[in-house]
Design a protein around this nucleic acid. Sequence first.
DNA 1: TATCGACCTCA
DNA 2: GAGGTCGAT
Length: 416
Amino acid sequence: MSKGHATAWAQLPVSLNQLCLATVLRCGQSFRWKASGPDEWSCGFSDRIISLRQSPTHLHYRATFPSPPPKSAKDDTAEIVKDYFNLSIDLAALYEKWSLADPNFKKKAGEFKGVRMLRQDPWECLIGFICSSNNNISRIGQMVDKLCATYGTPLGTITHTSTNPLSPSSPSSENKTPPTEVAYYSFPTIEALTTPDVEETLKKLGFGYRAKYIYKTACMVHKDRPKGFLNTLRDEKDYKEAHAELIQFMGVGPKVADCVCLMSLDKMGAVPVDTHVWQIATRDYKFGKGKHRSLTPVVYEAVGDLFRELWGDAAGWAHSVLFTADLRTFSDRLENTKTTTTTTVKSKTKVKVEVKEEEEDEKIKLEDVKVEEVEGEEVKTIEKRVRKRGANGEVKAEVVVKTEEVTERRTRRRRG
DNA sequence: TATCGACCTCA
DNA sequence: GAGGTCGAT
């Protein structure tokens, strides 16, 4: 039982190929779903808590309202759920298409069915991903919880029953944790995050430098944009336009903007390139063939283009499948097929090779990388030009620094 | 255009 | 050091 007014459980026909709840709700799209039971998930929406369960053939849902709804009101929770999970899109058909176009996708997809993009509220999505920089899913979740508890509206409580999978062998006794009442809140409105105290409060709550970003962005959206601005990016702007609008906000770079485009603005081709995706591109798709030492804006876009060419219009959706497969949380699923390649830098030697007096030779690249590979050992020679400057900033000399990096690669198969 | 240090906290 | 961004150079 929970405080509040819960509707009866209802269901929607949804196969596991179309949606895998346990994966989709934990793969870093939304940070607000809580496990409220062994196979139950709950999340606060604007005026109600929605709880979900899944069987092989159905998605079960129910709503818990803070106060009894008028008898006349008909429950629109089904509509909310269909919309939130983008259920009008046939995911299985997309998997077919991607598998045909890409053997690597096909290989990974078997263990990761039903990974679809949510269709979240753009404002919540924006703030959630501003929190995501230099951060991990679990802490982002904790931060968003605090944000909601502090600036959101209470929606009631849900009784959480044991989610501890530890001892299914003795269901009768010991290891059961007692049920607890957990409070749920709505996500704060835009306006709620524009009060002058917000930055300081969030700092105290452990948001770090993101506190300022959130406050500033809230102010920008609220004061400098027309009402409903973020939602208009869905229909009135295409992907590029929406992306350009989003990176105007404080704390929003290309990656965060792509997350918002993909997960809340119906831009299925948006591919957020974070360090994971960058790894996937270089490791599994040989992107750049060892060039590119950092993820500059140009390289960022090139990675997205690579995947868009490979997977087509809904590349962002496809990317999410491989991204999820790469997450530590789910790494056990690939145990049987996986080969892991670990690379360790064995040695690194820097040698200053020559000193040039004030030479302006545009032909020398600022950085030149040569790679040789011998029996699992990779020797990279990096030539980097470093300018020594005097007190006035004038170039006094240029030093070419050669770095030899010896990398050892070990590939091993885990039990299979 | 690309690179670099700083930024908050927690692991 | 992390599932990034900002501001300066």
